[in-house]
Structures are given as C-alpha cells and as structure tokens.
Nucleic acid binder design. Structure first.
Lengths: 163, 163
DNA sequence: GCACGATAGTTTCATTTGAAATCAAATCAA
DNA sequence: TTGATTTGATTTCAAATGAAACTATCGTGC
C-alpha cells in the first residue's frame, strides 16, 4: 500500500541506524537493572566503572574514558561525592587537576553493580554464538576507530581518508 | 600505577559499553554530515527516512519505527511541517490519527540525505570485511531482540527468560 | 442514544543537557 | 619577574527532554 520511494534507504540494513537502535535497547535494559536498585545514573555508573578499572583518574581523564562531556562528569561527580562513593583531591603536582578515587563504600557499590552488569551481559550474549561475540567486538572497535577518523578528516579540509 | 580493583570489569570487552561508545561515535559522525548541510536534526532525519521508506505513516507508527518518544515526534513534525518537508492530514476513518507524507520538497531532501548517508556508510563499512558486516547486522538484530525480551521479563515477575 | 474506558496526539512543566563563558592554575615569551 | 596563552574544571543559561496531564475522538456496553 504505502508508496515507498523506489530508491528508498533500507533502514533495517543501515548500520548507523541499527547500531543506534540496538545500543539504545541494550543501554536502557542494563541501566534499568542498576538505576532502580542503586539510584545510580548511566553517567555515574560509567564513572564508577572507569574508577574501578583504572584506580585514580582526573576529571578530564574520566570524561575521555567514559565519553561523557565535561559538565556531565562534573555533575555526576558531585552526586557521587555527596553520596560518599568517590573522594576528590586536588593534585599536588598540578593544582588545576582533581584526582578522583572510589571510597571503600564506592568500591563496594562498584563491585555489586559490576557483578550484576556482568551477569546481565552474560544473559544478553547467550543470544550469540562465541564466534559472533568475537566478530562483534572486533567490528565495533574497527567502526569506532573509522568513524572517529572520518569525523576528524571531515572538519579538516587538508587531510583525506585513505582509500 | 593506578590501583585497579583485582576483579575489575573489563570495559573494553563489555558489550553494552562498547555498543554505546561505537553507536555514539557513528551517530555523531553521520549526523554531522547532514545537520550542518541541511539543518536537519537526528530525530527529523529518522522521520524523513521512515517516510521515505514506508510512504504514509501516522505519528504513532513513526514513533514506533524510529524509536522516538511521542513528544519528540510531535516536535520534529512541527519543524518539518514549518519547513514544508512533510504534510499532515487527519485520517478520514479515525480522526484522532494524522497521516504524514513527504512533500515533493521533502522527497528531494530525503533523497539527497539518503545518498549522502549511504556513501558515508560505505566509507564506514570499508573498515570491515564482507563477512564481518553480515555477522554484525545479524548480531545486532539478535541482541536487540534479546535486550527487549529481558526488559519485558524484568518488569513482569511471572515471565522468565528461556534458558 | 449515553456513560465508560481506551487510544492518538499534543501540551505542560520540572529536569537535564551541553555549548560557551568563566575561573583558576600552569606554562610560555619577552 | 610580568603579561599573554593554554589548559583543567566548573558554572551559566538557553534549549532540549520526557513523564505525566490533557484534549479529542473512538469503540463498547447498557
């Protein structure tokens, strides 16, 4: 019935669209698990996760690792600080920087959520074969790198993407 | 140096995180291409794309197809309407529904962006082998379905995910 | 018919967002 | 030094967001 354009874009095979949809569904599904149980937002969880993984980080490093913008990091840290899950200390060497670490309580919460997140992921990945999981992760890495590279060269008229 | 927790979650292998990061990079990269050139937002493009693909759709169907919430659809439609890229008509059969179609100009813009988007995707996918592309799309589909299913059964204590 | 609840779409409003401005400290140049 | 510039982090503020309330219409039972 509905008169689609002859040369219409096949959205169901269009990778940017499919990525956005799946990432959204997965993100909402997982965050629901810890948001209502711990009152932790996605941004807050990303920060906890990176602190759990890397130990000490500055606010800027956190922004980079967790791909959050600076104001989001500042605000998430304020909430985490007020709940005593992280502690902040201006760096001796460069007093513009703030070193962030998990408190004991922060580590406890991190570990609880990490366990939950991991078992949620296990259930999710049960939908895939082992091979598919490997290819998926590798493909995501390649696409990520390529997308960033394309964005860079986009703004910069001198540089070109290699063929 | 940085004292990571012994049992830390390996973020670089954690699928929900990797999906979010890659989807974000790809989405930003692509939208930059049409946002500055056409002044079309992501939500607006999704609507154009679905109209281009399906011809006529109600606002509700658009929301479902494009995974946007209702207010977002309403507002995106207002902007598209004011730019005369879509036309609205209340349905004869059920006068609560509004049938949306692309105008001639809307079709033109749709086709232009679709062409751009497709060539952008081609450049992106050059990072992957043909096999990887296939596996990626299939995996995304499976993950999407599974994530939705897990979210449903989460809220509903009776249902359980099959093993 | 007329009340009832359900559904499509819009609007409201308190919250969230993020680009740009700001502040503070470090680094560079003269 | 001292002024100019850059960099890390925070704050501001206008715009976007989305849950809930609302409006309009539909279908159903009485």
């Amino acid at each position: 019935m509905s008169s689609a354009l002859s040369s219409a874009l096949a959205l169901d095979k269009f990778v940017p669209y499919r990525l956005a949809v799946t990432a959204g569904a997965v993100s909402r599904g997982l965050s629901a698990v810890y948001e209502d149980r711990f009152g932790i937002s996605i941004a807050e969880w990303r920060i906890l996760a990176n602190l759990g993984r890397f130990g000490v980080l500055t606010a800027g490093a956190l922004a980079e690792h967790s791909t959050l913008d600076k104001p989001k990091v500042t605000r998430a840290l304020q909430r985490l600080k007020s709940r005593r899950l992280v502690s902040r200390k201006t760096c001796r060497a460069d007093r513009r920087e703030v070193a962030i670490t998990l408190t004991i309580e922060g580590e406890r919460v991190y570990r609880e959520i990490a366990t939950l997140a991991q078992s949620w992921e296990t259930q999710l990945l049960a939908a895939l074969t082992v091979t598919e999981r490997g290819v998926l992760l590798r493909a995501l890495g390649k696409l990520d790198a390529r997308a960033l590279r394309m964005s860079e060269t986009q703004d910069n008229p001198v540089a070109r993407v290699a063929p």
